[in-house]
Design a protein around this nucleic acid. Structure first.
Lengths: 231, 231
DNA sequence: GTAGAATGTGAGCCTCGGCTCAGGTTCGCG
DNA sequence: CGCGAACCTGAGCCGAGGCTCACATTCTAC
């Protein structure tokens, strides 16, 4: 706590550390390498033991370096988790920006569902540690915030896409439907191992559901209005 | 541990302690009362701070007693959590045995969905701490096991009910469908505050989905077979 | 009333995890 | 070469949480 003691000289940019911030930016290749290996170690450990069992000592050991080096680059444990999560968010953002296409191009909405889901499954599979953040099992702490930010981004992107495609569906209905659909997708992706099964069942489950809100030809409200949303 | 030191005389039943077991059974009313208040305190604290932040000291303090008393009745932290979870399981089991009715009585499956869900929402609302176990956010530790057991029980009960109502639907399809439906319901119940909304949207989402597996009149396989399930 | 069981209490032990620090090694560059 | 910056290291401080234990109090049964 408040122990900046000896490194008071201008770090370079950020003046005062907030929780979960980086500490130094590496200037040499050595530094960048240890930083990277630390982040990678964190990712694999996240998969192996989960966030609550994640310790800084274990990270350093797995990375083949020392705790001292860890704290050279990260102000605290949260910082490295944030760093990791940032990378995930970058991946997801890129994917969303590039690969989410107009749902009207697909005759049946279940095809659009699988198209969107499959991209996320890719990221899911290829990035160690991602499932830990993505699953949204953590509400508090850095993982909680990052997961929320991640979901917010996905939500906003899809919301916009749907809004453009179906301007006649009310914002309220659109977001309600999307929120429910995303929660469902998150849960199944996180908790069912067989991803092929998940994609197929998600189509069967969400296809008709989405279709009941967004009919292919137009965009009219389909059912009774409903009370407040808790999303 | 092996620290039974002074209470070697026959406790009464269980010979050697396993992890998460009770320690002594209270013989006087005093004892039973402090035990109960400890369990209640645990339940409310579970809601307030969650399992990871739950400490034995906090439990004792909230219960208005001392850590010493805590360890008089519970061998360790897990024991009291198990105790709590057992009570939840009892509630759920009672509900399942008494209130889950034949889906064929309902014309549209969405009505059956809401019927089943509403009962669970009741329990959800009336038992402090229940959401923590039910949410299934914990995979490891006592909560993880209890959550799994709880879900297993719900699954089995509904599986049997559906099996009796629709004998023509293959076991594989039935269980696949039920597994997906339950995961969906769990997620939405855990993560959306507005329970009324949840129930309505679950009807709209799961009604058609279940109907696609279990048609009201008969019970034939409806779609393509699918690979292995990860449920 | 009194023995002995049941129960209550909290200081404190022990372990473990986050994080520091003082001292070393390596690197970039004149 | 030499000097300062960047980087590395790990013993150890600190606080927190699980749990124990020796002793105090209350209850039950005779």
């Amino acid at each position: 706590m408040s122990g900046d003691s000896h490194c008071q000289e201008a770090l370079e940019a950020r003046p005062h550390q907030e929780a979960g911030q980086r500490r130094k930016t590496p200037r040499q290749q050595r530094g960048q390498e240890t930083l990277d290996v630390l982040v990678s170690a964190t990712a694999t450990l996240l998969d192996e033991v989960g966030y609550e069992q994640l310790t800084t000592k274990a990270i350093a050991a797995r990375a083949g370096t020392s705790i001292g080096s860890f704290y050279q680059f990260f102000a605290n444990k949260d910082a490295i988790v944030n760093e990791l999560a940032q990378r995930y968010r970058g991946q997801v953002r890129t994917y969303l920006a590039g690969s989410v296409t107009d749902p009207r191009r697909y005759g049946i909405s279940s095809a659009w569902v699988s198209q969107v889901i499959l991209g996320l499954v890719q990221i899911y599979r290829n990035m160690p540690g991602f499932r830990g953040v993505w699953s949204g099992r953590h509400r508090a702490g850095p993982l909680g915030e990052q997961a929320q930010a991640l979901r917010r981004e996905v939500f906003d992107a899809l919301d916009q896409t749907l809004g453009e495609a179906f301007p006649n569906v009310s914002v309220e209905a659109r977001q309600r439907c999307l929120g429910i659909a995303l929660e469902t997708a998150y849960q199944l992706l996180s908790n069912v191992d067989d991803k092929k099964l998940v994609v197929e069942e998600l189509q069967r489950l969400l296809g008709p559901y989405l279709a009941s809100y967004f009919s292919a030809s137009n965009g009219g409200e389909t059912t009774t209005p409903i009370s407040r949303s808790g999303r």
